[in-house]
Design a binder for these strands. Structure first.
Lengths: 118, 118
DNA sequence: ACCCACTACCTTTTTATGCAAGGTACTAGG
DNA sequence: CCTAGTACCTTGCATAAAAAGGTAGTGGGT
């Protein structure tokens, strides 16, 4: 018998959703990275991602011309795709920075109103 | 000929997605509201666009037992459903507050790293 | 009495995207 | 040449926002 407890993990996952694209661009903006680097970077900041999420995302950003890559050989394993931002990617990132800023202002404003009534 | 400009609106929409549930709970936490009230509240903060998004969300939160409602007559038009948080809804909101807090810390940390390299 | 505008509720279809799981291929060491 | 490790990618599923369309109560004008 499972008590009908609200599944918070799903909500957490939904919150991360959509922010991943932004975070991925942020990570790549700092220098050339390949998929595993990005994965580690985002995991280090508690933004859980799995391979199956990241690869399609990178492909999509590539076909939107926000990213480009170059193959580089590895000392241990197959060659890697190192991604970097295009000019268009940098512009998009600036816009997403702005969006994030506005969004967090809105939410923090809602939170303040909420806290007053408690 | 359309220049291949990245569709930022879609990204914005994806960012809002998942945060809407949280914001809706935040809005209702401050007192009984009906759908149009909530819509106006969230629109004022650029967090939602249309009715068709809100009604299914309210139904879902209701069936998850986070919300309950009472019918109240209106002076001009059909009766309205006034929503309020259940005990379980208040608990969930506390957890989502925590999740939001952690998430914004993570992203702001990424942003700081990004800004250093610019 | 009737129509129309307004308000409010809800449903159906489409689309986007994260996640789980599974698949291919290169490299190096025994 | 087999195995382990690494790296790439795809397929199928579930979730949920957005777009569009539908139903119904109220009240004012004619």
């Amino acid at each position: 018998m499972e008590n009908s407890v609200f599944d918070t993990e799903n909500s957490r996952s939904q919150m991360r959703k959509g922010l991943l694209e932004y975070c991925t661009l942020l990570a790549i903006a700092r220098g050339e990275l390949y998929a595993s680097d990005i994965l580690n970077e985002l995991k280090a900041d508690n933004l859980i991602v799995v391979e199956g999420t990241l690869y399609p995302l990178l492909s999509r950003l590539k076909s939107d011309h926000l990213l480009e890559y170059t193959w580089k050989e590895s000392k241990a394993g197959p060659p890697r795709k190192y991604y970097r931002l295009t000019k268009e990617g940098k512009d998009a990132l600036e816009q997403l920075n702005q969006t994030w800023h506005e969004l967090s202002l809105s939410i923090n404003s809602l939170i303040k109103k909420y806290e007053k009534n408690n």
